[in-house]
């Protein structure tokens, strides 16, 4: 079942297009990782879904609801953390939770205490938020998103400012909520490695467009290890790979580069094969396909024009 769906969603500020014809879909039970460089349109998409920004064109549907009133009704079931923790600095953690709970119409002392415990904060600590570390603020903000048992969580950079233990705890919490409580989660993050540990599917945004959507298994496929060979003569080199190497799983990359995913032969054998066919090798490396470079490649390279 589709929980959140956008159709041809766009947003313009004057002549600047920040969101361009985005067709996005968040299915029930997913942990959807939204990836993209700064200004790619991730936060704008989230803000439109949450009703903070009005789309220039296109539609948003949450649990099938599309009218403004129905969307507002459905948004009550969504816990969200956007940009920075929305906290009142002169109040303690408990008081912040209480203020939010009163607003959401779900004030329950016991629930607040349980959530604060879950995010590693003490309900009885009188320390004001202005004296909190960034990590504590982030954890409290996540705690607020959990008020009222939301069925969907939208987290924009949820591990910002957290130490490794905090990141681990948030990851555990996100996975537990998804696994045990069937909470559908949309996470936007620039920490790709961290995202890959929790997300079950991904959306890559670039220049306001959703350029690619893929499952976790697709990403694993893209991150396979391979032998990267830079050769002088691609035509002959290809013949070697097909006829002598008998490899069917390879990829032609720019700059006379071949990526061979069939790792059945050791590198010296590969070198010998090319040498026997008089193909000059400029370089040969065994590469571990890493997530970061895969995403960078999907986002159009470091400067928007590099390819893997």
């Amino acid at each position: 079942m589709n929980i959140i769906e956008t159709s041809h969603l766009s947003k313009r500020y004057g002549s600047k297009v920040v969101l361009d014809d985005v067709n996005f879909c968040l299915k029930e039970g997913e942990i959807y990782g939204l990836v993209g460089r700064n200004g790619a349109g991730k936060t704008t998409l989230i803000r439109e879904i949450l009703g903070l920004a009005a789309p220039t064109s296109g539609t948003i549907s949450i649990n099938g609801a599309m009218s403004q009133d129905a969307l507002a009704y459905e948004r009550k079931k969504i816990g969200s953390l956007i940009d920075f923790p929305a906290l009142i600095s002169h109040m303690s953690a408990y008081e912040n939770m209480k203020a939010a709970a009163l607003q959401f119409g779900c004030y329950d002392d016991q629930e607040i205490r349980e959530i604060l415990h879950k995010v590693g904060l003490n309900a009885d600590d009188p320390l004001k938020v202005k004296n909190f570390s960034l990590g504590m603020k982030q954890r409290l903000a996540i705690g607020i998103t959990l008020l009222g048992n939301p069925s969907v969580l939208i987290l924009d950079e949820p591990v910002n400012g957290l130490d490794p233990t905090g990141i681990f705890e948030v990851r555990e919490l996100v996975q537990r909520l998804n696994r045990e409580d069937r909470v559908t989660i949309l996470i936007s993050s620039h920490l790709l490695g961290e995202l890959s540990r929790v997300a079950t599917c991904y959306g890559v945004m670039e220049g306001g467009k959703l350029v690619k959507e893929m499952r976790g298994s697709d990403l694993e496929e893209l991150c396979r290890p391979y032998i990267k060979v830079v050769i002088e003569d691609m035509k002959v080199g290809l013949r070697v790979v097909v006829d002598n190497y008998h490899a069917h799983d390879f990829e032609i990359m720019p700059y006379n580069t071949l990526a061979i995913y069939d790792l059945s032969r050791p590198i010296p054998d590969v070198v010998k094969m090319f040498a026997d066919a008089n193909v000059k090798i400029n370089s040969i490396t065994e590469c571990q396909g890493d997530l970061e470079s895969t995403f960078i490649s999907l986002m159009g390279g470091l400067h928007g024009n590099e390819n893997k």
Binding site: A99, Q103, V183
Partner: peptide, 28 residues
């Protein structure tokens, strides 16, 4: 997961309660 019965509650009363609470916590 079951979402709390948030939607049946009077949202204006909730907003008002929250505002009074926040105002009451303001030193100013």
């Amino acid at each position: 997961m079951k979402t709390n019965d948030l939607n049946s509650s009077n949202s204006f009363a909730n907003t008002l309660k929250a505002d009074f609470y926040k105002l009451g916590k303001m030193k100013s």
